[in-house]
């Protein structure tokens, strides 16, 4: 799927660029997006080293074990067949903690550590494992408890009640996450059934 999306986006941008007369900007983007990617990579590199180091201290000090115990009852239903005492599960719990606290800058490096460890533990080869999909869906559906970015922009534009959106955000995120996870579980069992036939 990623192959098709990658190719389709570039092909469509040539077509749309021609239709809307924006070819200058498309050309510019084609040449300069790689530099933006390197900027982002450097930003991630720093964050990954920093949070990779902190993660190591947290593991040695037993903090991640305490967090794992806290999340185990809930997460064991989502991540089936994963070693709940293994390193991948500990990293997943750290990532979820960072997400819940709204620490996006910490959540991504910790999430990458979790993906790396999931690959080491599950050895999925070229094709993603079920638990990897579950973890990615968990991170693409936002699980932040307090929408700080939205609230701060609302304040800047003179909102009378910047935090009034909170109940809507919580209900919407919870439903979106539930829809994402259940569709992932459903699609997984469908594809397994097909394989058996």
């Amino acid at each position: 799927m990623i192959n098709r999306i990658f190719a389709a986006m570039i092909a469509l941008s040539v077509i749309f660029g021609t239709l809307s007369g924006n070819m200058d900007q498309v050309c510019d983007a084609a040449l300069n997006s790689c530099v933006e990617a390197v900027d982002l990579f450097l930003y991630l590199l720093g964050g990954m080293c920093m949070w990779g180091g902190l993660m190591r201290i947290a593991e040695k000090a037993g903090i991640t074990d305490a967090l794992s115990e806290l999340f185990k009852p809930l997460l064991k239903h989502i991540f089936k067949g994963l070693d709940l005492n293994g390193g991948a599960f500990r990293a997943i719990c750290m990532n979820i903690t960072a997400n819940l606290l709204g620490l996006g800058n910490a959540a991504t490096p910790l999430g990458l550590e979790a993906m790396r460890r999931l690959e080491l533990e599950e050895r999925p080869g070229n094709t993603t494992s079920r638990n990897m999909i579950m973890f990615v869906v968990l991170n693409t559906a936002s699980i932040t408890l307090i929408p700080t970015t939205a609230a701060s922009l609302r304040i800047r534009h003179g909102s009378a009640a910047p935090m009034e959106i909170l109940p809507c955000v919580l209900i919407t995120s919870a439903c979106a996450l539930a829809a994402g996870l259940s569709s992932a579980a459903a699609l997984d069992s469908i594809s397994k059934r097909r394989k058996r036939k």
Binding site: M115, E119, M132, V136, T140, C175, A179
Partner: peptide, 26 residues
Amino acid sequence: AVYYGITKVRNTRHAIASSLTADFTG
């Protein structure tokens, strides 16, 4: 892109479809 980029996985199966289901519901 970033999460699977760190692994050797290239076939992401229904990861995109399920994530977009979550977005659309949102």
